Simulated scan of single mutants.
Amino acid sequence: MTNDHIKIGDVEPRIRYLGDGVQTQFGFTFPIFEDEDLKVFLGASAVPESSGYTVTGAGQSVGGTVTFETPPGDGVAVTLLRDVAIKRTTDFSESGDFRASVINNELDRLTAVAQQLSNQVGRSVRLADTDADGTLQLPPAGERAGRLAGFDAAGNLIAAAPGGTGALVSGFMETLLDDQDAAAALGTLGAQPLNGDLEAIAALTPDDGDLLTYADGAWTAAPPASSQTTGTWTPQLTFANPGDLSVSYAAQNGTYLRIGDFVHATFEIVTSAFSHSTSSGNCQIAGLPFSASGNIANGATNGLRWGGINKPGYSQVLTYVSAGSDHLRLEACGMGQSATAIVASEIPSLGSVVLIGSVGYRAISQ
């Protein structure tokens, strides 16, 4: 150490770096008196390193450098801390020499100790400067054993029991926290133990809106398939008992839109030849693209353009779909008349039949 005393500036006696696996030299800007005054820590270890590095700069006001033999690993914390022993290193004799360098060195040590104590206090739990008087002293070991560190209504540190008065957790969480192992905790939570299915699901990386599905022994997460479909169908004019019915069509078209289980179907039937002599029963339009759900009492009917039907006293013709059926029935209604089915005898043979309209109904789920 040189004859000039160390000059202790206003500097923190601690510095921290992160290693990159290459750097070996790490500087410190606070002065130390001897190499032993510097503690070197790697990672989160509370025990300082005792070897594997050298220190330069002891006795210099500007600090120094720690050089490692092996570079600290990438991301490994490197902490350099001044830790001067709190002891007196000088003794002044009665009527002896009172050298300035000796008293300066002693005052420098006292200042260094004050700085490291200030650093330790600043990194500890303490009351705010604006708080009223209180205590953060731990209760005796016997009072705090098996309890949690908490604060009472005045903000003072206490040993708090989980649950109960002044609880830090709910009663339910108290029963969970006292479980001795994972199996007991699962029982308290009513949770399913980890299994192959849960591991497979946890390994998925779904996007927002994806559906979780299980098929062929595997779990997948994928966007939902479109629930809307469109298509065509072929409407067919017939009767409950077709007999010798013969039909030729000038127009025979049908389209549908299905959204979920709801189906909106259109149809166009125009006959070019139509004859029957043994047909009987209600008139039907067969060939619906989807059978009606068994959960509906009546299918919804829409407007119908019609011709070739002879039912005196009735002015309207509607389509009707029964629960579970795959065809439409034709019904007639009129002022003061109850709705009734249109039967084969009310559609004259050799006439021209026109049925153009649409129907909405709920289909069997796919």
Results as ranks from 00 to 15, higher is better:
T2R: 14
N3P: 09
N3E: 11
N3Y: 11
K7D: 02
D10C: 05
V11Y: 08
R14V: 08
G21F: 07
Q23R: 15
T29N: 11
T29R: 12
I32N: 10
D37R: 10
F41C: 04
L42I: 02
L42E: 02
S50W: 02
T54S: 14
G57E: 08
V66G: 09
F68G: 08
T70Q: 02
L81Q: 14
L81H: 13
R82M: 08
D83R: 11
V84R: 05
A85R: 13
R88D: 14
R88K: 14
R99F: 07
S101A: 10
L110S: 05
T111S: 10
T111P: 02
V113M: 09
N119T: 02
A128R: 14
D129L: 15
P140D: 08
P140V: 06
E143Q: 13
A149K: 13
G150H: 08
F151H: 09
D152Y: 07
G155M: 14
I158Y: 07
I158E: 06
I158W: 03
P162I: 10
E174F: 13
E174D: 12
L176T: 00
L176Q: 02
D178A: 14
Q180C: 07
A184F: 06
T188R: 15
G190C: 13
Q192I: 10
L194H: 01
G196D: 10
D197L: 09
A202I: 04
L204G: 02
D216R: 03
G217L: 01
A222W: 09
P224V: 07
S227I: 12
Q228V: 15
T234S: 06
P235G: 06
P242I: 04
S248G: 12
R258V: 02
G260M: 03
F262S: 11
E268G: 05
H276Y: 00
C283E: 06
Q284R: 14
A286N: 11
G287M: 03
G287C: 03
P289Y: 02
S291W: 03
A292M: 13
G299C: 05
G303H: 09
L304R: 06
R305G: 08
Y314K: 00
Y314W: 05
V317H: 11
V317W: 09
L318R: 12
T319D: 00
S322M: 11
Q337V: 04
A339N: 04
A341M: 01
A344H: 14
L350M: 01
S352R: 07
V353R: 02
V353C: 02
Y361T: 02
R362A: 03
I364R: 07
Q366W: 04
